[in-house]
Design a protein around this nucleic acid. Structure first.
Lengths: 118, 118
DNA sequence: CACTGAACTTACAAAATTGTAAGCTAAACA
DNA sequence: TGTTTAGCTTACAATTTTGTAAGTTCAGTG
């Protein structure tokens, strides 16, 4: 879906070569990705659990975001041993290493996000 | 340009109410925003300076990103005192308070962004 | 007063993301 | 064996972001 010949794509790549922060940002950008990481950190692991945690997300988008997170290596999809056909998702070591990043984002938001006081 | 009635917009708002990290992320998301903040932190302040620092950015997009950052309160546009018609941009106190966030993003990228080794 | 350069703006188009609605598959259950 | 349920996938469309190309405005310079 991404055209690797587009100016947009090339600009992103160039930027990631120039700015580490922008690279990190790109890994966690996407409407629901960051929140998914937070939820996974809290222990929710099944597709349906995540769906419940993010009421407004559609199955299509949830599947997409999970797939991208998996492709970036931040999460791992595993078949659950006991009940066959059931999967669960978990943070990879790389995903866990984002802890400090997520914490910073969360801390800043806690202070500056007026909406969260509602 | 943003339709405040779209599902997309509503989902974003809902998410920001549920997840502080997502709120913070939204403030700094945009192809060049984060890198602009980094450059401003390094002292580049004029429109043309910023343009030079980010070779591939177009004037239109630079103006757009600066305007959004200003609207979010992260930067301030000031008329330079001496030479009239010249402006400069600087980080607001709110923008400066992102320091830890940007540092975390940058640190993680430094470790995990293979491209930056080129 | 013509000319240049900085800092934009406008009209348009391409690309990318996100959402809607429906369907599909395999296991589990009644 | 028919029905559910979880976990997707597909075709499509709306929305949003980003880029292209060309102008505009106004101060400073010669």
């Amino acid at each position: 879906m991404i055209k690797t010949t587009s100016t947009n794509y090339i600009n992103a790549q160039t930027l990631h070569g120039l700015c580490d922060a922008a690279y990190t940002l790109a890994m966690i950008s996407g409407r629901w990705k960051l929140t998914l990481l937070v939820k996974l950190r809290e222990g929710n692991q099944r597709f349906s659990e995540l769906k419940t945690q993010l009421p407004a997300i559609t199955e299509r988008v949830l599947a997409l975001q999970l797939k991208e997170l998996e492709k970036s290596g931040l999460i791992i999809k595993k078949a659950s041993a006991l009940k066959s056909k059931l999967y669960h998702y978990e943070l990879s070591p790389l995903g866990k290493s984002l802890d400090q990043v997520i914490q910073s984002l969360s801390d800043w938001g806690k202070i500056n996000n007026l909406q969260s006081e509602l």
